[in-house]
Amino acid sequence: MMRIIPFSLAFICVIMVVLEGTISLNVLHMIDYLESKSITPHFLFLFLVYITVFFDRSHTYYGLAFAVLFGFTIDLIYTDILGIYLFVYASVIYVVREIMKLLHANFLVVMLISIMGILATDILAYFLYNIIQVHDQIWQVYWKNRLIPTFIWNILFSPLFYLFFNKRLKKWSAIMFDRKG
């Protein structure tokens, strides 16, 4: 059981990466409100937050490692430019890890952290893509047309993630790390 756990976490991460593309294709264009708005699903990032909050202990780096690995996968599949999502996800997850050393893992904390995290990732990605001239959108257009819809869409999924993964991750974490000691 112990050996399977990292692989099942990785498998869920792959599913999240795939879902982001499929949801963008099939679901997001159906919402009529979205004429000039655009939504970026950050399912993988949400799941990484849940791993960091509920699964990782102070001496393990699973969340960070998956952030690097699957951030790079997202760069490969969905964008032209490698390294941006790798950097964005890894740095935000690192900060989340540092914060979680001070806080207890519960529903309110994980909601708060996913709110901050989604805002931080999307704004960071906006600035980095702006620097390397992938887009030239000004800030006022960006936060109205992209930041707010993206934020609302992703934050709706955070409680769902809590329902699905909260107990499972805690259980897996106990199996992984508690027996050794």
Partner: peptide, 9 residues
Amino acid sequence: MARSKDQWF
């Protein structure tokens, strides 16, 4: 099969 998750691409 999929669309880029980031709408800038």
